[in-house]
């Protein structure tokens, strides 16, 4: 059995307040527990990771030193800003491995994540941490054997910097993340009258976009639980093209095409109020309306059994 607990579901920036009490205001973070496995898997270190850290110290530390594998979807700030506030990193004996993608032009993962912990930003320097932290850059890899029957595959997604989706498989069950992600599209000029128009580029651009979108769907095919970027409505997206996020409409359609059983709409826009989400749920989450996939809005502190 895999158990997923969502500690932060919000995109861009934490947004606590009376209007986000129900779905939550913390940034991306989730905890994955796998039956019989000591290691605690954490995906992303947005502001939600602070509460997770507190819970681990309260509930798990008494069983011995913490063994944590942190997987980062990417290194945009809203996905790493909670790291300095994650209490286990200050506890001697904690063993942690930070996995994540790094864009070609960027510094090593250790500097990108640990670079937040400099005196100018934070009172403690990354070099002063008492725990044992190892950093591992990840690329696109199929079926990594994590031991105990747990498999992990990764897939590059479409975002302004390199981002990875994660697919965990355990005893025939699949839990998959697909954020931050915008559907691939043809980036090349398609208007034949444009002076820079190039037929081959326009054509290939279209082919590649379709092919990549298909590859992403293949990646989360048949997932029992998919957590998918869905920051915008199709209408809102019109002015947010290239920002690296998906629409509800896209996420739902893609999940249905891929035979996903349950889809959690995730990475809520910080301006989205509880009332608005409740209203949207009437449309987007109506059973059977768009297909067989069960659709729901990700809610902070909720637990999902896979």
């Amino acid at each position: 059995m895999m158990k997923v607990k969502l500690w932060g579901v919000r995109g861009s920036i934490p947004c606590p307040g009376p209007q986000t009490m129900k779905y939550g205001g913390n940034g991306a973070c989730m905890e994955l527990r796998v039956d019989g496995r000591d290691e605690i898997i954490v995906i992303d270190a947005g502001s939600g990771v602070r509460e997770l850290g507190n819970a681990l110290v309260a509930n798990d530390l008494s069983n011995g030193p913490l063994n944590i594998a942190l997987y980062l979807s990417h290194t945009h700030w809203d996905h790493i800003m909670g790291f300095p506030y994650f209490t286990p990193i200050y506890i001697p004996g904690t063993r942690m491995t930070v996995h994540g993608p790094v864009s070609y032009e960027d510094d090593p993962l250790k500097d990108v994540v640990g670079g937040q912990m400099k005196y100018r930003y934070f009172p403690i320097n990354v070099g002063e941490l008492a725990s044992d932290i190892e950093y591992k850059r990840l690329g696109e890899e199929p079926n990594m054997d994590l031991g105990d029957g747990l498999l992990l595959s990764t897939k590059f997604l479409n975002h302004p910097i390199t981002a990875l989706g994660y697919r965990f498989e355990y005893r025939g069950k699949v839990f998959c993340t697909c954020y931050d992600h915008e559907p691939y599209r043809n980036l090349f000029i398609t208007d034949p009258d444009h002076p820079e128009y190039d037929e081959a580029m326009a054509y290939e651009g279209e082919e590649v976009a379709q092919e990549q979108n298909q590859a992403v769907e293949e990646f989360f095919k048949g997932a029992d639980l998919l957590i998918h970027d869905s920051q915008y409505t199709a209408e809102e997206y019109k002015t947010k093209v290239n920002w690296g996020h998906s629409t509800f409409e896209w996420a739902i359609a893609a999940a249905n095409r891929a035979g996903v059983k349950r889809l959690a709409l995730f990475h809520h826009d910080p301006d989205r109020t509880d009332a608005q989400i409740d209203e949207m749920a009437k449309t987007y989450c109506e059973p059977g309306k768009y297909g067989d996939t069960e659709v729901f809005f990700a809610t902070e502190r909720s637990e999902i059994i896979v």
Partner: peptide, 22 residues
Amino acid sequence: YYSLLNKVTSLTRAITMLGMNT
């Protein structure tokens, strides 16, 4: 570096998959 599962054989493909910036 990217350890892509499938080889990228054209710039058009590279730009679509990895983005302009990269």
